[in-house]
Nucleic acid binder design. Structure first.
Lengths: 324, 324
DNA sequence: GGTTGGAATGAAACCGGTTGCACAACCGGT
DNA sequence: ACCGGTTGTGCAACCGGTTTCATTCCAACC
């Protein structure tokens, strides 16, 4: 296995020069750079990341914390983040936990010694827990906002408000909202948005909390029917799926007898003409978050540039016309 | 940040002794070990993994290659593998690709310099591609067998054969199999098993290939109905979901008018009494595979112990009675 | 009582890069 | 011809551990 020493020797320069030629070519004369690069190629040199990490203080590893892999909401985010990380030569490792228990925090702390930064999708962790964790190492929050920390979120709340208003405008007088985990930040935002839209104009039944599974959608069906709602807003793709199945099983046509909003993917998959859909671009979320994280990591410490605790919001389009 | 030097100084021993006390206590007197451990605790010492990796030749990182995160088949596997890796103090990174294109192989090779081993779930890659890759670094195949390489697979083929026989025994004379990706190893096995069970006893319609999505289940519905099959075997949970929805949409009750086999999770979620289900324990798959991998990694090189290219098969139970 | 062998420990090399500092060569300006 | 200032390069220290080898000490053995 070729090392930097071999390359340097082959190129007839010192190890230091070889190193610079490879990692900061501007410091070395063009001719020398060419020679070193050539030797590296000939010898099949691949820099040892571990050594580089030890010397350079960077591990080349970033982590993303997600509460679960089972929820299809997170997988595109991971894909986008990984793609963006790879573009910068970084590896992405995935830690699966909610950052909301002492054990989770311990895992986070341990991992934080071994990565350059974190992407944190922790909808359930309390602010007081997430903040200190994220503040101690370059981090970007995903789909969650905490004052003083950078974040990238999908503006689902606005989309949900729009859905509610749309339903009302179309004559519905009783709508139901199937809510997610109790302490989820996004869930709180969404409920607020839907409530604001409904206030004084229509009956709103808020159901939940339900985990984001097909099974809970099926379970929720009973409560929906009982509520008398004619339009349903659900917070997760899997739940919509379960709802639709459950309603069908009771002989109710969707969206004929009762309208269920769903993710774009579900509407497209089931070919649900007439159901409104929302579309969260998870990949873009992941990419942008990773981009922000890399900026933070690369920023010289105390550079006094921008603290960049901005909360980016990605628009979430709502589609009312059927998909063709 | 406390380093080994600090600990050694605090404990009044040399760095070498401190290192040994922490990583191989049997080489040091019990009294000294206690003193070092105490100092480490007092100083809040956390060993630097990077340095340890550089000196020890191990990165403490293992990777799992999966073709996609969207298919719910892989997520429990990842969870199990990660759990098992964590138990050995290893980190798991996830590489998402099929190991079936030049770019994928390049990614694999690059990553292989930075991890201690691979878990490979590459159903589609050709033997001639996967073999050399896996042979060059400690690896364990998941849900795929190649002669000469260790593997852990779910014995889905047997379960599928059993399903086919069960349907036939129950009087079905025309069954359909909804197949997965064309070149998938498991798919080939499953088709063979189903065909063997059906041979001469019943009409078998093999459909596909279909990607493992709800949408393709819906799409497949037309072909199912056309085939006249009264029982359907589908290879993925998402497809079953789509099938059931699609059949319902056409006014066919499941499992009343037509029986669809599905994963345990789907049957449970939709409360499908009377439909047979199979249950793949993905977590166990991941755990066992990781266990095997760690054994390989820890085995001294050329130890001449067991080459251990065994192909482990995990049983996949088939359930015919409804779930209560 | 002198020799032998094992246990406990320390000094220093080593893993493979990065980087601060010193130095030489070369630049245009006066 | 002399000088301050780049530019290009090499030496050696350094990152934080692990491991080889030598050394010391002491109990056991002939």
């Amino acid at each position: 296995m070729a090392t930097l020493d071999h390359v340097a020797q082959h190129a007839g320069v010192s190890k230091a020069t070889a190193s610079r030629a490879l990692s900061r070519p501007s410091l070395v004369s063009p001719a020398t750079v060419a020679r070193v690069l050539d030797s590296a190629r000939v010898l099949g040199f691949v820099p040892n990341r571990t050594a580089r990490a030890l010397a350079g203080g960077r591990t080349g590893l970033v982590a993303i914390v997600v509460p679960t892999l089972e929820n299809s909401f997170f997988t595109p985010i991971i894909r986008g983040a990984q793609e963006q990380a790879a573009a910068s030569g970084l590896h992405l490792t995935i830690a699966v936990h909610g950052l909301d228990s002492p054990a989770d925090i311990a895992a986070f702390d341990t991992l934080s010694r071994q990565v350059d930064g974190f992407l944190i999708a922790a909808p359930r962790g309390a602010d007081e827990v997430v903040y200190p964790a994220a503040a101690g190492i370059p981090s970007v929050l995903i789909d969650r906002e905490i004052a003083g920390l950078p974040s990238v979120s999908a503006d689902t709340a606005t989309a949900f408000g729009e859905l509610a208003r749309g339903f009302i405008d179309r004559g519905h007088t009783s709508i139901a909202f199937v809510g997610g985990p109790d302490r989820s930040w996004q869930n709180t935002q969404r409920i607020a948005a839907v409530q604001a839209a409904a206030a004084g104009r229509c009956t709103l039944t808020v159901l939940g909390p339900y985990p984001a599974t097909v099974a809970s959608g099926v379970t929720a069906t009973a409560a929906i029917v009982e509520s008398g709602a004619t339009a349903v807003i659900s917070y997760a793709a899997a739940i919509s799926l379960g709802l639709i199945f459950g309603l069908n099983a009771r002989g109710l046509a969707v969206p004929g007898d009762i309208i269920v909003s769903a993710d774009d993917s579900v509407v497209a998959a089931l070919n649900l003409r007439g159901a409104p859909s929302i579309e969260v671009d998870g990949e873009e979320l992941g990419r942008q978050a990773m981009h922000r994280l890399i900026e933070r990591i690369d920023a010289p410490p105390h550079s006094g540039v921008l603290p960049d605790a901005a909360a980016t919001k990605l628009p979430v389009p709502v589609r009312w016309s059927p998909i063709d």
